[in-house]
Design a protein around this nucleic acid. Sequence first.
DNA 1: TTGTAAGCGTTATCAC
DNA 2: GTGATAACGCTTACAA
Lengths: 375, 375
Amino acid sequence: MAADPPQGIGLRTVRRRRPVTIKDVAQLSGVSAATVTRALQGHPRVLPETRARVQDAATRLGYRPDHAARALVTGISRTIGLLVPTIRDPYWAEVAAGIEPRAAQDGFAVLIASGYGDPVRAGETLEVLLGNRVDGIIVTASAGVAEPRLTPPMGLPTVVVGLDPPVGPLELEGARLAPVPTLLEAAQRHREGVGLSHVGFDDVAAGEIAARHLIELGHRRIAFLAGPATLATVLRIAGVRRVLESAGLELTAVTRGGDTFEEGRAAGVELLRPGHDFSAIIAFNDLLAAGVVRAARTLGVDVPGEVSVVGFDDIALAGLFQPALTTVRAPKREMGARAAELLFEHMLHDLDVQWELLGGNLVVRESTAPPAAGA
Amino acid sequence: MAADPPQGIGLRTVRRRRPVTIKDVAQLSGVSAATVTRALQGHPRVLPETRARVQDAATRLGYRPDHAARALVTGISRTIGLLVPTIRDPYWAEVAAGIEPRAAQDGFAVLIASGYGDPVRAGETLEVLLGNRVDGIIVTASAGVAEPRLTPPMGLPTVVVGLDPPVGPLELEGARLAPVPTLLEAAQRHREGVGLSHVGFDDVAAGEIAARHLIELGHRRIAFLAGPATLATVLRIAGVRRVLESAGLELTAVTRGGDTFEEGRAAGVELLRPGHDFSAIIAFNDLLAAGVVRAARTLGVDVPGEVSVVGFDDIALAGLFQPALTTVRAPKREMGARAAELLFEHMLHDLDVQWELLGGNLVVRESTAPPAAGA
DNA sequence: TTGTAAGCGTTATCAC
DNA sequence: GTGATAACGCTTACAA
């Protein structure tokens, strides 16, 4: 917490530097250091001629303002921290890809720290971010990994992207049967508990989109393959059920899945054994959906002929899989960009806590079709 | 180059901070600031009792050393910069995932900057890195994007990962026919031109591995689907040819591909039209290989029954594709970790420029098999 | 073993 | 419009 942890490389061992400073520029251009700053920063009250002379000198010397010195006096590091569970997950990589350009646009650098899927390590890397005096933090919270450690940065502008807190097994089991409004209330409670601004994917709307697509195709018996025991699963189920119920239908089944291809495949084998009574499956995400499709193929069940399958996210795989996956696309880049924007707003004005949910859009490919005649 | 570019958010608009400083800790523990530093840094000559008191005070106050201030006086930022073409590419994400933990291990943070696939933008983000006074830089150089801008950071320890400079069309065309030693010499020339330490994938060895696998299966007529016009393509071809030639064989064909699934598919359609005279294809990477397989399927050509296909890299898709792709895995994480290690060595001692090539390993899956009887 | 003081490179506050 | 000068928070000779 307080001191630096023991570290492999001692401070004094690293090579020092001796770069061009503002004084060198001042000397060469024959003005004071103060004037150099003003000239370079575009301060209004400098003679155009002086400014030109200073800029020229700066360029000639290859002067580059020292970030650390500036940060020290201004109290602003012009750096934002990004805490991700792991950058290897293409989903978060995509979100990060949305953040970085938006930050760069305002001259902010992005310091990335990885939580390694472990709350303790996440806490440590958060410390690194804070030690670097980042001006703000964006936390990507997959499966609630980083969430419990979110309290310390308080006081520092913080935005959460894709908050997805774990839910109890009861809530997950009950998701199929509990009244939809109850589910939504539970979600609201979860969000309020965090007390931080948040940019997320509108899971409820996404569930609705998936369900509506299937109903429009003529499906009436639909199963849901749940993801991990987190809020997102509950909400997508709620969205699906909302549409189903308004069509006088109900979810035929909800099965525990997971979030990997393998788990999807295993669940698919379970789900698709002879005698199942649905014509379509909505899977929590694309990887799971792909697993189900693979299981179907192995079992000789035709997709979409006998069973339609819908996923969520629209990962790169979705379009390359065979059959290509119909899915509800999550606006990952946009979520990242919006989070950065929101963070800047927080840094500038004392903005109230805000929740923004970005909608998904249906991408129809080959894994869905009208149900078979007799179904 | 010199001054800051005009930026969206003015410095003084951002909220200031007033965190706990070393003075607060000094006051609370009744010692001087100097002693606080020493106590917290593990300096040998502090009374254990004093140290304890200081540490206690620091913890109680939630003191966190200011990175900027420390960087200013020590000249060391304890931050390394990572320049990637784009973090969205799972390949580089994986490499980054290897760098970050290795850096964290020595208490270094990683500042990520994206080149956006554009040399100019890459140059700008490099400036950001340098302005942040990073202690070292790792440049991931895909298809030579960042390479031309590599000169400026000179003087700062720099390591390149996955350098892959463009080659002239002549070199690419000639790769099939030119003597292998000539190809290897050309590669050597390219590398020497850079003058920076480098961690890479051993393309030659990888090509050999792929070719050997096919030959062991009994294939004798093999085609190569080239990637972009870069050194990696030439070297993989060289590796393949080396093995082929020592078996008294030669490459049946080399076709221009690209590096996307779509390009692979298009090339596959070209390549696989009736009358082709090979029983196996080595594609420059997995995405290309997947495209070829898809083309084969569309054309009714059985993989691996009629044609075997090998890729490189072992991206996530490779295992999920159907048939699952046989490939030569690139040790992406390891490359990242090794690059970080090498960078630290450069930062500590005045290490000579070094090239390290990490070997790949064969991952046999379903896209390769012995050639059909009559082939 | 600890304290004092100087200084890292920059910006901000005054004067002029 | 420009120049001294004093911070910013920390480390480090040098003294004590």
